[in-house]
């Protein structure tokens, strides 16, 4: 029970601080909207069939948007000197991971809640309710992976001198398998492919999520202490 309270306290304070500044969510939202508008204009002219490339474009936008947010997540803790406060408290280190990861997951999901409808409009996408549900489920599953890997790697990068550079360098190669599966799943939904293919990709994403949650849980104590 104490563990649940500690994790909840971390999420709550991150949400409270974000509500005050809104700097992370607004930066992410502006970026993702801008990227989608540019993509839809640029590709809309040369392609009649946006469905084919839409999935890829969506994830390129989401990926860079996530990095924008994830990079802030621990820089905050470190710059205000609060990381020591967190490390000093009698919390099991992996629980710090879960708290920070859930906060990041929440911020990603909130931004995407605004971004996805805009994406549907810009790319003139019409999905039935059930397909839209599968679409959103794919995005959420991918978010779990992105938030897990991102939280783990941004923890590593704050202890390096080149921390703003470090996250992308570590993050991009690790996230590529998830990205490919996510593109294939959302692209499949948009172009009306067989659902079995889509489910296969989703299963892959779920397995990826579980693996990285476990890896983070096992490594976190080591990673967070300098």
């Amino acid at each position: 029970m104490a563990a649940g309270k500690q994790v909840f306290a971390i999420v709550k304070k991150d949400v409270l601080a974000e509500l005050r500044t809104k700097e992370m969510v607004i930066a992410m939202l502006l970026f993702v909207i801008l990227a989608m508008v540019v993509f839809s204009q640029a590709f809309g002219v040369i392609l009649n069939d946006l469905d084919r490339v839409g999935g890829g474009l969506l994830w390129v936008a989401f990926l860079f948007m996530s990095m924008l947010g994830l990079n802030r997540s621990f820089v905050h803790e470190k710059d205000e000197g609060c990381l020591e406060g967190l490390l000093m408290s009698p919390i099991d280190r992996p629980l710090i991971f879960f708290g920070k990861m859930l906060g990041n997951l929440l911020f990603l999901s909130i931004v995407e809640l605004f971004a996805v409808p805009i994406f549907f409009v810009l790319f003139r996408l019409e999905l039935g309710a059930s397909m839209a549900g599968i679409f959103l489920a794919t995005i959420f599953l991918s978010n779990v992976g992105i938030a897990s890997v991102g939280t783990l790697l941004s923890t590593i990068s704050i202890n390096t001198k080149t921390r703003d550079l470090m996250l992308p360098i570590l993050f991009l190669p690790v996230i590529i398998p998830l990205l490919i599966a996510a593109v294939s799943a959302t692209g499949g939904i948009m172009s009306g492919e067989e659902l079995t293919e889509v489910y296969r990709s989703m299963r892959f994403i779920a397995v990826y999520d579980i693996i990285f949650l476990l890896v983070a849980y096992a490594l976190y104590d080591y990673v967070i202490s300098e």
């Binding site: 205000e80 609060c82 000093m88």
Partner: peptide, 17 residues
């Protein structure tokens, strides 16, 4: 850690709370 209190160079406080 449960038994230790620390006042450090930095205040260990969140500025936006």
């Amino acid at each position: 850690r449960a038994k230790i209190g620390l006042i450090s160079h930095s205040p260990l406080l969140y500025l936006d709370l």
